[in-house]
Design a protein around this nucleic acid. Sequence first.
RNA 1: GCGAAAGUGGCGGAAUUGGCAGACGCACCAGACUUAGGAUCUGGCGGGGUAACCCAUGAGGGUUCGAGUCCCUCCUUUCGCACCA
Length: 833
Amino acid sequence: MADEKELRYDPATIEPKWQQKWAADPTLYAAEPKECGKPKYYVLEMLPYPSGQLHMGHVRNYSIGDALARHMWMRGYNVLHPMGWDAFGLPAENAALKNNTPPREWTLANIAAMKRQMQRLGLGYDWATEVTTCLPEYYRWNQWFFLRMYEKGLVYRKQSKVNWCPECATVLANEQVVNGCCWRHEDTIVEQRDLEQWFYKITAYAQELLDGLDTMEGWPEKVRTMQRNWIGRSEGTEVDFGLEGSGAKIRVFTTRVDTIFGATSVQLAPEHPLIKEFCVSDAELKAKVDLLIEEQKKAKESGDLGAIEKHGVATGRFAVNPYNGEKVPVWVANYILMDYGTGAIMSVPGHDERDFEFATKYGLEIRRVIAPAEAGAEEPALPYTSEDGVLVNSGAYDGLRCTEAEKKLQEVAASGGFGEAKVTFRLKDWGVSRQRYWGTPIPMIHCAKDGLVPVPDDQLPVILPAQVEITQQGGSPLSRVADFVNTTCPKCGGPARRETDTMDTFVDSSWYFYRYTDAGNSSAPFEPATAQYWFPIDQYIGGVEHAILHLIYSRFWTKVMRDLGLIKNDEPARRLFTQGMVIKDGAKMSKSKGNVVSPDDMVVRYGADSTRMYALFAAPPDRDLDWQEDGVAGVSRFLGRVWRLATKHAEAARAGRSRKYEAPSGTALKLLRKLHQTIARITQDFEGRWHFNTCVAAIMELVNEMQAADAELSSGAVEAAVIHELLRSLVLLLAPFAPFLAAELWEELGEEGAVLRAPWPACDAELAREDEQEIPVQINGKLVTVVRVAAGADAKTIEAAALADEKVLARAAGKTVAKVIVVPGRAVNLVVK
RNA sequence: GCGAAAGUGGCGGAAUUGGCAGACGCACCAGACUUAGGAUCUGGCGGGGUAACCCAUGAGGGUUCGAGUCCCUCCUUUCGCACCA
């Protein structure tokens, strides 16, 4: 009875046993020093926010990364596979309010819990390089970078309109506003507020961030496109229209300066400084403008600026077109944005959809100034927006093609001093001030005498105080901590106040992966030589939801660090992989939908190996994965079959360990052939295709075939040396996907050392080769039969075999074979009439 | 509206280059065994037909000896962008 019990695969005893062994060996998953001579491989999964619980998305992400890391270890690489915690942020403050637990305590407890989950899952991380962003050992370098960037003019402070989430009671970066709502509170409308804020000058790198995308072939095209759109480069021209009866100029931005002779009005943003000026002496206008401002604000807050109903007001002033001296009315309109271009446009109704709509509504003149390039073509209806045309009604420029005219007009503007070619970006500078407690203190001091004074390096880190009352009211919680706020000015020594805003948590995650390379460094963020050895990251893996926020900030930070001389790489990661979501019953797992599956439950019921392997088996990693618990049970059953097969024949395998088989035949050859074909398939997939679902399927096929030959394996018909190779290689193939079972069976087979240190099995092409193959035979494109020929048979042989086949003869009887198409190794098609 | 990806059995999915559609797994059906287990083993499992065969990869066209795969039109779903001058 006891014996029978032992024949059951029991992950609940196997897995904790190995978990303990691995925990006791810190070198197992540790990277080696750069002098080790092996090629390096840096595989990174996005670090989690320590919410306290891993979810299935994490399990999937880490199962992919861990399989890759283990494979690369077995391929002989020096692998860096680290993990850390994106530990600052609002949930800790919310939890503090709810449970009266200090954010630090809450966060560290969550980290401990999630680390336990990761270890239980058998994820192979080097915990010696663990990074926790909320600890001063880490965030002091956020402060250090802030100061270096301040010195380089890449940090500045300005009063600006900011996105304010009433729920978070703090500011959001543009990137954190989704459809007019907060990225963390999908139903909370973001307000616009005026505040003094710190900014990182990401726009200084706009062009480089854009150009880099073209060379980043290891990144998904989808992510690159999203970043291109976000950066939003647009080439055009700035032109000064004179304001009639004053020396003032109205500078407009246009991408179609070639249409400027068709400009029949100039439109200003409601918040344009000139409009403010007009309003000072014109209460009636001011009232109308205020209404436009209100409409625009509402539209911005609802996130659907595109749906705004266009409204405009004529100011009664006129602007002068510098090219022809023409007077056109100056309007103010609710769809013109102050923060794009110059906040002013020229309106060309004849050749722009929007302007056409506006002009039609308000009865402004619509003029044709572009005609189709082909002579004699019919005049197209207005608005005619094609750039493939020639200028008409445009004075001296008539007859020029649009692109020529654009250049010419830019030259004229430049030499006349009333304009120039100009590139505009949608990308805005990154506002990093947050009126929150749980974040990196901004290392600046406000002195009444000396103004803004940076905290000197030797006073870093500026420690985030522990005892802080957290409330949901606006204003920085730190401003209520007198001990923190009151300080002395580093310059004059007089009394001064500390900056009380903290940094956006996306600062933390913009460079954490550099810190992994030298996590213990207390005199620098990392040693440049070490970072240069490991960077760029060879494979970064995470969710596509970070396509813009995290991944654009990280690229920016890398370029800044390069310009500070710390690193040599231009981009952080050579390859990026975005895995699909985990869904259940057709919807993303979420508490509100009640379809959340807990990883802990899965591990308890089926074990970590089955849970991880299912996450890889159920779908290709880049696609969404539908979680079906019956599928996990299926994988678990499969691992049970592997376990029984291996333990049953372990003795034979051990006996065959030191022997070598010769010229296998029959079942032995068949199994070895299947084995080596499987090795080839899986090895190839790890090189880049990453269809781990089919890798697992291939292992299942192999096991099915071995199981079908159970009688021969047991009877001695297959010699021990062959059984040894079969089982040993099977365990190696399984190691990246089911590390616990692999370790257990490795031991069972009498192998020494860790599976991870054993070389990945090599495919023996000779053994893998089939000596016969089946060739489908078609008649007129329809499959009729299959003929067996020797592998590599030439076209003649295949044709002869096909023509000799009974079914073919029967079908072709009385007809003429008009043509025979033979694709050796693939198919035969007979065209029969 | 613009752009991208996807659409294959009851379900998840396979078919890397145009060449046997449905690998592998789930669910289901039948049987064996029984220690009655969250077992295990054997067989079946797209549709129609007794069969030979015929039909089938969102719909419709096309290219080709041959199309799930390439081209065109359309439909559906998901994602991204959307007065950016």
